[in-house]
Each structure stands twice: as C-alpha cells, then as structure tokens.
Design a binder for these strands. Structure first.
Lengths: 257, 257
DNA sequence: GCGCCTATTTCACTCAGTGAAAGGCCGGCG
DNA sequence: CGCCGGCCTTTCACTGAGTGAAATAGGCGC
C-alpha cells in the first residue's frame, strides 16, 4: 500500500475517501494528500473532481467533508439502509417496550458494522456510532454474528489476539469458542460488561430468506438493572420478526413511487 | 456528458456509482456499462477495483450493488448522519407524542434529500425514501427549505415548471411565492394534500449555529384526522430543540470513544 | 513591503488506461 | 454431445490522461 507512481487512478480516488474516518470527518487538502499518500497536486486534482460530483464538500473553514451525494449513493447499499428500513419498525416496537438502546449490526469480514441504533434519552450511553466498526468478540451483536459466521472468519478472529476492553472481556480463544457454541445452542448472546463496565447487551440473529444469518439485533441496558434471561425472548422475537419481513420483501420488486 | 474517450478516469468511476438509483439498486455489468456510457471492458476494470475496495458488492445473482464500505464512508457526511444523530432523539420524542410519521430533510441545490424518517406501523404510508430526493415546492419540509433558501434557489425553482402531484399541488409561481412569504412569517409550513390526496404535512425549520436554516423537520399525518394549526407548535418546538443541540455540538470536538 | 504556508497551474514526459479482438464461461437447445 | 449466444474477462499495441517538479497564485501575520 505504498505510494508508488504506478497506482491506479481509481485506487487514488478511493484512498482519498478512505482518509475520512469517524475520528477525522473533516480534512484539509494537505491532510488528505498525506493520508492518501498522494502528492499534493494529484490530490488537488482528484479532490476537485470529487467535489464537482458531490462526493466531497468544501466547508466554510476550507476543509473537505464527505458530501451529501455520496451519502445518497451509500444509502442504496442493501446491507445498509435496505436492511435498516425493514428492521426499523420492529426496532421501534422493541424500544417502546423496553426504552433501552436497540442496535442493528451486520458483519463485514472479521468486524461488525453498526447499521442503526435507537438510543433513548434515558438509556445508557453507548460508545459506538452508526456507520462505525467494532470487533466481533466482545459485543452481543458481535458474538451472534461471529457464532454464525463461516469457519474462515472464526479462524481469523481466534488466530489474532483478542482485544481487551474491560476486565470481563473474553480474550481466551478456547473460552470464546465455547461461548460461541453456547450462542448457537441457545439462539442468543449475552455480553456482560465485556465492552464497558456499566452495560450489558443481549443479541439475537436475523436471518435472510435463505436462512443464513445476515444481521444481528441487540438491546444494550445498564448492567445493574439487567436480567439477560428475561430480555432474551424479546430480542429473539424481534429478530424473528425482522427475518420474516426480509423473507417477504428482500429481492422482490420495490414498490414504485 | 457523452462518452468521448477523453473523460477522466475519476469521472468514469463516479459515473458507475451514479448508475445506481433507488429504482435500480442492483445492476449487471453490462447495465452498469450502458448507464455510465462506458465500453464494457472499461466498466469491467473499474468495477473490479470498486469491488476490491468495497464500494460495490457482487450479489449471489451476479449483479452489483452498492457496498457496505461506501455506506460507511457516506455515513460520515456531516449533513447526513451527523445531523441525523443529533436530531433522532427529538424525532423519537415527537413520534412518541403523535405516533405519526416524522421526517428530516435537507436542501441540496434545488431539491430536498430525506435524511431520516420514523414511520410508525399505524401512520399513513409515505412515498418517499430515506436517501431519496424530491422537489422543493410540494412537501412541508420542501416549503420550509425553499422559504429560507438563497434567492438564486428561488429563481431556479420558480423559473422551471412546477410539477403537479395532485390537483391541490401549487404550480403557480406567484401563489408559491406568497406561500413562501407566509412560511417565513409564521415559521412553519403546511402542505395539504399537495403530494398525495390522503396526507398532509406540517414542517418547521432547523437552524445551525450561525442561524441559517440547515434542515427541516415535519410530521406527515392522514389528511382526514389532521389539524395543522394544532400540530405546528409541536413541530416547531422539535425544530428549536434540534437547533439548540446543533448549536452546542456542531463543529465542536466529537467526544472520543 | 516580506516571509511563510497552502493550494493551483504549467509543461514536457510516460505509464495507466484504452479499444478491438480474442478468449473463457455457462446454460440452453437441437 | 456439440454448437450457439449472451456475458464477462483478458490480451496486446497504442496513446493521451495523469504525472511530478517547478513556477505561480492566494492568504495571513507582522
């Protein structure tokens, strides 16, 4: 991934988009050039084209941000908003019953991506961000997604060192493997203070029309008032409801208008 | 926009992304090539690079879709999810009070883009789509965004013929101009059966820290049970609440973690 | 005015991208 | 089985879009 002159133009354009992260959503041209490992004139030219199309926007402060046009196109991702739109009504139902954080995530390679979150005013604050990534081995949704992932993903996750977020994070591969077997047996996952010491999450799988697990839904609640066993059926029911709506509407024609 | 060989590579890549629309979120390579006005081999090469990066994904049916990675990057757009995340709690409050559709939109040139919608199970169905565009002159959010838009946007909208969606759509430029003045006077907009004959929307502005209108929020309700004058204060209050949270958190540092 | 930083433009060079054609791949059909 | 036809990828020689170095153009402080 070094900046040899022989890089394709496309990869340069994409490297410029890659430069934007949740931690740095606004960048000057020179910052962009450095992060994308491009000479400044080249960055200037590519950025100008991206701005003309609407993929980037130049703010009043002269820094560049991701443009609305790119957000529009990105919202067409079937695993992003497509899934989201089908899941949202059920997530709202779950929120109204519990008034706790409701999260929706999918697996991307050996990480998870949060697709949607309903964060009530009175629920515990959550660290993560919609559109953000996270490791698979600690969160409730992560454990569900990992439990039903293909073997090569298991290998990949279990081979690398498991990052520790709290003293309760499972970092032993053998123990994680047993946890995953338990998740498959019961059909839900509990992550008790494995990400932060004040929260606990209960997650259940969402299956696509072919039966494969395509996403996971979870409730994140304050650890002290949590009863994971009581919450599990609620979350599982929501997961099944969304699975059913996926079965009926996924792949079928979109209603026009 | 013809396909002369002299097009820049960047524009070809972006044309491929442009090929995806809400009406056609999945395309074969040849469809992509045709829509982007590219020779098939060129499209094949560019698409391969986009797939490698994650901007596109190839489904089981062999068709290409927008990839999750592009959705992730797009979600960094400050006018997309950034605004959305600040507005969502207030939108949920408004939904819990009314149990009607709550919408959030921003203006992009002479159109509006829906950023978020809470669509309850029992609310009237809405035609529009999150991530979708719509004309400014018919919807409640559109009237608000247009009312507070710069003069050149007014010119542009009023110069072009105003599309008619229902018999009640305002298509006379003079009448629209008077409507916009009324919106600015009262601080809210009502679109009564101007988009569909069964729905009515009430919208209010959301202001950024500098006082400019950056977005609009609306309630969409069944026309027969609607009392726009009673709903207006609710929507306006929600708009002001979001404006305040924009004032405190926009531009300031994002909390880490 | 002058220095400093950042962004854009110029210019000659050259390699990434190109199209035409050939080559896989797959599924249908006689 | 073999042939066709649609669909995508690869090969190959060519060429112009993209390139870097350097010059140029803003912005800002002093």
């Amino acid at each position: 991934m070094d900046a040899q002159p022989g890089r394709s133009v496309t990869s340069k354009v994409l490297a410029l988009l890659d430069a934007f992260t949740p931690a740095s959503p606004a960048l000057t041209l020179s910052e962009l050039a450095r992060r994308a490992e491009l000479p400044l004139p080249t960055a200037s030219r590519r950025v100008a084209e991206l701005v003309a199309w609407g993929a980037l926007e130049r703010g009043d402060d002269g820094r560049y941000r991701i443009g609305l046009r790119l957000w529009e196109v990105g919202s067409l991702a079937p695993r992003g908003l497509g899934l989201r739109e089908l899941a949202l009504p059920t997530m709202e139902d779950l929120y109204e019953v519990t008034h706790e954080n409701v999260q929706l995530a999918v697996r991307q390679d050996a990480e998870l991506v949060f697709i949607e979150r309903i964060a009530g005013r009175h629920a515990v604050p959550v660290l993560t961000r919609v559109g953000g990534r996270f490791a698979l081995h600690a969160t409730g949704v992560g454990l569900v997604l990992l439990a039903y992932a293909p073997a090569e993903v298991h290998e990949q996750v279990l081979a690398a060192p498991l990052e520790r977020y709290t003293p309760l994070t499972v970092t032993d591969p053998g123990r994680l493997r047993r946890t995953l077997a338990e998740v498959r047996r019961t059909g839900y996952a509990v992550s008790d203070r494995q990400v932060t010491m004040d929260a606990l999450s209960v997650a259940a799988p969402i299956c696509g029309p072919e039966g494969a697990v395509v996403a996971a839904i979870s409730l994140v609640v304050a650890q002290h008032r949590a009863d994971p066993v009581a919450l599990a059926p609620l979350v599982q029911a929501a997961g099944r409801t969304i699975s059913r709506s996926l079965g009926t509407s996924y792949g079928s024609r979109r209603s026009p208008g």
